[in-house]
């Protein structure tokens, strides 16, 4: 597939996703309401629903989708392993554990501090898996180490929830990944943060390609491989912690999107990062739409919709991986 085709399809799907995302919900909304809410706001019920509920959700789903997809593409690039993703590297569950723990201990809601807490948790999960793997990021080793750590961290999270029944009620919905707390206030900071991190990642995109030639070649080309690896891993974990603090641990996005992008457009890292960001945004936008329809007019967590798409793909990927190794 050509890149131009990809961009055109992306723009078409993005516009369609925007229209669907604005129109689907309990309050009936016309195209005119959508237009008015943005350009000619008069304060009707429909316009308020768009501005205060649906638009923030749409914008947040883009932030979460982009963060997870970019994090996944970097993790896969660093480990040369198509299974690497925020979920499998223990980052999702680590971030979730820390966020739940901080809610339990402090009941806190401050957005910046929660992002930091999420990042530290993602870091913890990532470091444990990294330590367990040593230098060997083969699919089997990473899957086993990552999944064990994921289970361990999740079980601690569940332990906290079971001990404290008051926390339980507040967190279960969030733990599957949910966008229903989206607010327009502060949204612009999310975008600024995301933009900066992605620029940093793109600046060194070439270095990731050199790394993919193998450590020895990279070293002989004069690259400080350790430094590059650490910086990129930190960026990926930062993005994961950021997205978890916003919406809870949404699964499968970081796994599925970079793999599809690589299949369609090749594996130059800079491009994989850019197109994964676009694909991640689309996946979350449409997952959010599906999640609203599953038990309409009541809410279903968006993580259920991404799992519906992601889990079959993951199995297919495992099966395909088997064949290529045999």
């Amino acid at each position: 597939m050509k890149k131009r085709q990809f961009i055109i399809i992306f723009l078409v799907l993005l516009s369609l996703g925007f229209l669907l995302s604005m129109s689907i919900g309990p309050i009936k909304v016309s195209i005119k309401d959508i237009y008015n809410s943005i350009f000619n706001f008069t304060g009707t019920k429909a316009e308020n629903a768009i501005i205060t509920v649906r638009l923030p959700r749409f914008l947040l789903s883009i932030v979460v989708g982009v963060s997870l997809a970019v994090a996944g593409s970097i993790m896969q690039g660093l480990t040369h392993n198509p299974l690497a993703s925020p979920q499998l590297i223990g980052a999702n569950s680590g971030a979730a554990l820390f966020v739940v723990l901080s809610m339990y201990l402090f009941g806190g809601n401050g957005s910046l501090s929660i992002t930091l807490v999420g990042f530290l948790g993602a870091l913890l999960g990532g470091v444990i898996v990294y330590a367990l793997c040593g230098r060997d990021f083969s699919p089997i080793r990473l899957s086993l180490a990552g999944f064990s750590v994921h289970l361990l961290l999740s079980s601690i999270t569940q332990g906290i929830i079971i001990i404290n029944s008051r926390v339980k009620d507040n967190i279960i919905f969030w733990l599957v990944g949910s966008l229903d707390k989206a607010k327009l206030d502060g949204m612009v900071y999310n975008y600024i943060f995301l933009f900066i991190v992605i620029i940093i990642c793109l600046v060194g995109g070439k270095k990731l390609d050199i790394l993919s030639l193998g450590d020895e070649v990279a070293l002989s080309l004069g690259e400080n491989t350790k430094f590059i690896k650490i910086v990129y891993m930190l960026m990926a974990l930062l993005l994961t912690g950021f997205s978890v603090s916003l919406s809870g641990p949404v699964g499968f996005v970081g796994l599925v999107v970079p793999n599809i992008v690589k299949m369609l457009l090749g594996d130059k890292m800079k491009e994989v990062i850019i197109y994964s960001a676009l694909g991640g945004a689309l996946l979350l936008i449409y997952s959010d739409i599906v999640s609203r329809l599953i038990s309409y007019p009541f809410e279903t967590p968006v993580g259920i919709a991404t799992a519906l798409v992601g889990a079959p793909y993951f199995l297919w990927l495992c099966k395909r991986g088997d064949r290529s190794e045999a």
Partner: peptide, 11 residues
Amino acid sequence: YNKLSIEKVAE
């Protein structure tokens, strides 16, 4: 028992 969005309550 049903979890409602603010939109559903408004509707």
